[in-house]
Simulated scan of single mutants.
Amino acid sequence: MKGVLLVNLGSPESPTPKDVKPYLDEFLMDKYVIDVPYLLRALLVRGIILRKRPEESAHAYSKIWWDEGSPLIVLSERMHKKVQPLVNVPVALAMRYGTMTIENGLQELHDKGVTEVLLFPLYPQYAMASTLTILVKAEEIRKKKFPNMKFTDVPAFYNKPDYLQNLADSMKKHLAGFDYDELVFSYHGIPERHIRKTDVTKSHCKIDGSCCNTPSPAHEFCYRHQCFETTKEIVKLLEIPEGKYTSTFQSRLAGDKWLEPYTDVEIDNMPAKGIKKIAVVTPAFVTDCLETLEEIAMRAKEDFQANGGEDFLAIPCLNDDDEWCQTVGNWINDWTK
């Protein structure tokens, strides 16, 4: 019997330092997120970052927290509830970090008699710190707890026409009547070394301005290429003129070279260039979360306006959009045929 496991990032149990700290510990101690030797990672995370970050992050979470709970969890659950009636196989929801574990999701499917699972990481673009860590964790659990299960995984869907159409339609709806000077495609940032580590050719990804546009097998796992391709395809669908959009990367840690240009730097500098009205979309996420609701819709907006900007529109993620849920249902149905 077949079944599906939708997997998203996760969330702390509450917007308090007490609950944020173990969540951040699990997240940042993941070797696919901070990919340095264990002892160095432990020193960095537990000796430095977790001394201050839980309080700072808890404050940020408290600004976006809903009465029902974490927006990412609530929105993921809404999507899950819409997708389930569209398919004829059991669908479970799990998170890579936090208490809604992948193990619990697989157990739920196992208890329903599922022996073949479609692992569905809810990330359009492939990255070590998102897609890969989900697949590795699920496989570890399968070997220990569910050895008779068989896995198939959904590859990065950054260039799938139906996903792109869903995103374009959603953006068009939210942009209606908003006369922007610049449309910012803000993607989650990752260290440049992650790009090189996932390069299956071990030589193509030089991050030199041309490699992302030069055909290569490396593109199947290249986050940077896939982000730029998403922008390129959406720009075509929405007929956005050249010079009226840009792609940037947000959420970086100090001390490493991360993908550029940086969202905060670019947005802060726009008013001085005469760009006073901007819209920001975050296509690395299908679900609104801390990085979209606080980092972009609140902090980036405040900074933009403090620097002389006037109008700022944060475009919501696809969340539980009916068209998007139908697309997910169609992909599942195609797999079950």
Results as ranks from 00 to 15, higher is better:
L44H: 05
W66C: 01
S76H: 02
D67S: 11
K81T: 02
K63C: 09
A42H: 08
Y61S: 13
L50N: 05
S62P: 03
A60I: 03
E77H: 13
Y61H: 14
L39S: 06
D67A: 14
I48P: 02
L43V: 14
L40Y: 11
E55Q: 13
L40G: 04
A58E: 05
M79F: 07
E56Y: 07
E55K: 15
R41Q: 07
A42Q: 09
S76T: 01
K52H: 10
G47W: 10
A42D: 05
L72F: 06
K82W: 06
E55R: 15
G47F: 11
M79E: 09
K63E: 10
H59T: 11
K52V: 13
A58K: 02
W66T: 05
K63M: 11
E55Y: 13
H80W: 14
K82R: 15
L75F: 12
P71N: 12
E77L: 11
H80S: 06
R51W: 03
L40E: 11
K63Q: 13
V74Q: 13
E68P: 03
I49Q: 04
I49S: 03
L39K: 00
M79D: 01
L39G: 08
R46D: 12
A60C: 08
I49P: 01
R41D: 08
E68Q: 15
W65C: 09
L44Q: 08
V74P: 00
H59G: 08
H59D: 10
G47E: 09
E77N: 08
G47H: 12
S62F: 11
S62G: 07
V45T: 07
G69L: 09
S57Q: 09
L72W: 04
S70D: 12
L50Y: 09
K52I: 11
E77A: 13
M79L: 15
I73V: 14
I73E: 04
P54N: 04
P71L: 07
K52Y: 13
L43G: 15
L75P: 00
P54C: 05
P71H: 10
A60F: 11
L43P: 05
R46G: 15
L39Y: 12
R78P: 01
H59K: 15
I49T: 07
K81M: 02
P71I: 03
I48Q: 10
S62C: 11
E68R: 15
L44D: 08
L50E: 07
R41W: 08
L50A: 08
R53G: 07
A60Q: 15
R46F: 03
K82Q: 12
P54S: 03
M79W: 00
K63R: 13
E77P: 01
V45H: 07
G69C: 10
L72M: 15
G69P: 06
H59Q: 13
R53E: 09
E68M: 12
S76N: 02
L39R: 02
R46S: 07
I73P: 00
I64C: 09
S57V: 15
A42T: 04
R46Q: 14
G47D: 10
